[in-house]
Simulated scan of single mutants.
Amino acid sequence: MSLLFEEIDSQPSPLGEISLRRRRIPALGDRDIYEVKLGDEFLMSSMFVAAEEALATLGLAQCKGDKLQVVVGGLGLGYTAVAALQDPRVAELLVVDALETVIGWHKAELVPLGKTLNADSRNRYVHGSFFDLATAPATGFDPDHPGKKLDAILLDIDHSPTEYLNAANASFYTTENLALMAQQLKPGGVFAMWSQNLPDPQFEALLKTVFDTVESHVVSFYNPFMSGDSTNSVYVCRKGTGG
Results as ranks from 00 to 15, higher is better:
residue 119 A to S: 14
residue 63 C to H: 12
residue 242 G to T: 08
residue 230 S to L: 09
residue 56 A to G: 08
residue 238 R to K: 14
residue 12 P to H: 12
residue 22 R to T: 03
residue 235 Y to S: 05
residue 114 G to P: 05
residue 26 P to K: 00
residue 115 K to P: 00
residue 126 V to M: 05
residue 70 V to P: 04
residue 148 K to H: 10
residue 223 N to W: 03
residue 227 S to M: 15
residue 119 A to V: 06
residue 33 I to W: 02
residue 59 G to Y: 08
residue 57 T to C: 02
residue 180 L to Y: 00
residue 109 E to Q: 11
residue 49 V to Y: 05
residue 33 I to D: 00
residue 36 V to H: 00
residue 199 P to F: 03
residue 55 L to R: 12
residue 173 Y to F: 15
residue 121 S to N: 14
residue 53 E to P: 10
residue 109 E to R: 08
residue 203 F to R: 07
residue 94 L to V: 08
residue 140 G to M: 07
residue 137 P to R: 07
residue 148 K to I: 03
residue 226 M to G: 13
residue 177 N to K: 15
residue 33 I to L: 13
residue 116 T to K: 10
residue 72 V to A: 03
residue 98 A to W: 01
residue 223 N to D: 15
residue 230 S to Q: 13
residue 54 A to V: 02
residue 94 L to A: 06
residue 158 D to T: 07
residue 141 F to K: 10
residue 122 R to K: 13
residue 138 A to I: 03
residue 33 I to S: 01
residue 97 D to Q: 06
residue 160 S to W: 14
residue 85 L to Q: 04
residue 193 M to F: 10
residue 173 Y to A: 13
residue 117 L to V: 12
residue 109 E to M: 10
residue 174 T to G: 11
residue 173 Y to D: 11
residue 90 V to K: 00
residue 212 D to S: 12
residue 229 D to E: 15
residue 3 L to T: 09
residue 182 A to P: 01
residue 50 A to S: 14
residue 136 A to C: 12
residue 97 D to C: 04
residue 241 T to P: 01
residue 194 W to F: 09
residue 208 K to Y: 05
residue 63 C to D: 12
residue 212 D to H: 14
residue 52 E to Q: 14
residue 241 T to Q: 11
residue 30 D to C: 04
